[in-house]
């Protein structure tokens, strides 16, 4: 067994798990944070994307022993009881998610991008989402939402769609 202590969404969490446990399994099975999804388990689909020490990573490709002392942010750490995170709000507004299974991973990739680059171009957004597969093929609306969220995070008005 490996004893691991790390910070998840601002809280210190500990667990004692077999060494072959991945960060994704730790989050889902031990901490009940099921927002991060298991899609392929080999780092191809990006549904398990979380932010570790500021960088988006595939949580299915990290062993628990490797996340000792690290700072992990998951989809559950973006919003609180009263507020949505701008990306979540705009993904909802633009209807960017269809089946939704890729959503948490996509939003975490987008969050990491906007943290670094407050005004990304379409090309930069596409590059940032290169590791997140969406089989409902809803990338266009995701890009619209990410651009909208970047406006809001910069304190500008987002180009929302008006109801008829």
């Amino acid at each position: 067994m490996v004893n691991v202590t790390l910070r998840v969404n601002g809280e210190t969490r500990s667990a004692s798990v077999p060494p072959e446990t991945t960060l994704l399994r730790l989050l889902r099975d031990q901490f009940n944070l099921t927002g991060s999804k298991l899609g392929c388990d080999v780092g191809d689909c990006g549904a398990c994307t979380v932010i570790v020490d500021g960088q988006p990573v595939n949580s299915c490709l990290m062993l628990v022993g490797q996340v000792e002392g690290r700072e992990v942010l998951t989809i559950e750490g973006l919003a609180n009881a009263d507020h949505l995170y701008p990306l979540q709000k705009l993904f909802e507004h633009f209807g960017s998610l269809q089946c939704g299974f890729c959503g948490p991973g996509v939003i975490m990739s987008a969050k990491a991008l906007l943290d670094e680059n407050p005004d990304p171009s379409t090309e930069e957004i596409r590059d940032a989402l290169g590791g997140n597969l969406c089989r409902c093929t809803g990338y266009t609306k995701m890009i619209e939402a990410i651009k909208g969220a970047s406006c809001i995070l910069r304190g500008e008005e987002a180009p929302l769609v008006k109801s008829a």
Partner: peptide
Amino acid sequence: IGAVQTRNL
């Protein structure tokens, strides 16, 4: 190589 997530690791 890969994508952002794999390049970070």
